[in-house]
Design a protein around this nucleic acid. Sequence first.
DNA 1: TTACATTTGTTCGTATGTATA
DNA 2: TTATACATACGAACAAATGTA
Lengths: 246, 246
Amino acid sequence: MNGWDALGAEGPLYQSVQRQMLAALEQGEWRPDEAIPSEKRLCDRFGVSVGTLRKAIDALVADHLLVRRQGLGTFVASHSRPRQFFQFFNISPHDGPRTYPEITLLQFGFGKADRTAAEKLAIPLQSDTIKIKNLLLMQGRPVIVDTITLAAQRFKGMTEELVRNRPNTLYRLYLDAFSVNVLRIDERVRAATVNAATGKLLGLKVGDPVLEIRRIALTFNRQPVEWRISHVNTHHYEYVHRDVVE
Amino acid sequence: MNGWDALGAEGPLYQSVQRQMLAALEQGEWRPDEAIPSEKRLCDRFGVSVGTLRKAIDALVADHLLVRRQGLGTFVASHSRPRQFFQFFNISPHDGPRTYPEITLLQFGFGKADRTAAEKLAIPLQSDTIKIKNLLLMQGRPVIVDTITLAAQRFKGMTEELVRNRPNTLYRLYLDAFSVNVLRIDERVRAATVNAATGKLLGLKVGDPVLEIRRIALTFNRQPVEWRISHVNTHHYEYVHRDVVE
DNA sequence: TTACATTTGTTCGTATGTATA
DNA sequence: TTATACATACGAACAAATGTA
């Protein structure tokens, strides 16, 4: 025994299996919403017992990359199901249940990465970017203005029509049309005073306080794929975050 | 087979074991930072196999109630270790690593629950409460003002000296002195304008924008134990939140 | 240093139960 | 009803980490 497994890397066997399955996911061998092979078949493929395989799958399920459905199979996670919309939507009414926003595309265009965008997206200064600006209405009220920057490199062929006519969320569009799977987000929130343009959209006076949310959306390997600044009128809505010990 | 287990409730055996272990934790049979009995002993006690017991423990470890240490044993989680301080501290510099705040007690006193406090803490209107006000300095700068409300019922014998002389975090004091184990928090963030008193503490002019964080801290069974409003000067610091798909 | 006991970690294999089409 | 797939449960064997004699 030399401690080396088939697909690189040391460590327990189940972690090796986990890495191999992660690679299959990254390389698109198994597509979102599709079932992966059955446990039996995967045991054969990786040459391990059920218990070991299940431990690998357990880890990927815990990471929310896979979803198990008894009697059906194990599926690759995605943003298609409606209940998953709210996954990365942390704005909620002060009281009462979450509501679904109505989204209006304000702007779509191309640009060059400024210093912030270049840093956040880990791309060269002045490289090509795509800019999207959205207004989100909640129960008829303007609540959020999103300013989104993408690396054109990663989203070749993106058009205003694609964004405007998307049947699902933006992140679902990233996945379906560009194979970009957003797995986690990193948000930082500040208090700011609203400027004239955004204030007008949100029905606020210049200088009124708003939340400024700076988000980086990440895919496999924590690679950044989207840089987004949101301004939120928190008069009726607020930013929600739940946390547990660890 | 009738589907009923010894300690109430239906469902899989490992969940029954999990419930029994949770009960032992709630009732203080196993104290924070102490080791629970070995797997072998617990198997005997609950009359299950290692695999089943481990699955129950796995769930409690995933909930961060227990921590495993190979060769040592399985321990009850706590807030004593320094790295755990930041668990519920979501304020970080705009750039650079997290820093530890210097905390000053501004006020300690007793009061009666107003409507908000009563609702958030799920206690009767006008019932006795404890009020704590803290100023937090980060690298010498005033950044946060915390206004904390506790149900006196749950924290009998709380004194200013206990708060002032606590060796660890406030949540560690709750645990050690009152057996109140904070397991999760629910935070809602709004943009607000600072008032005169808080503005003076934070070095801001009246009307300057601040974050207003409204936190409920919860123990077992999602019972609320603390209601806290924080006002944050986000000129150099910001609220951080990471999120993954699920 | 060494040896040993204890405890959790990993892996295997098998059997049976439950959900779905 | 039947076949398939995941879920639960058992137990055994060995590895790795830790503390102590």
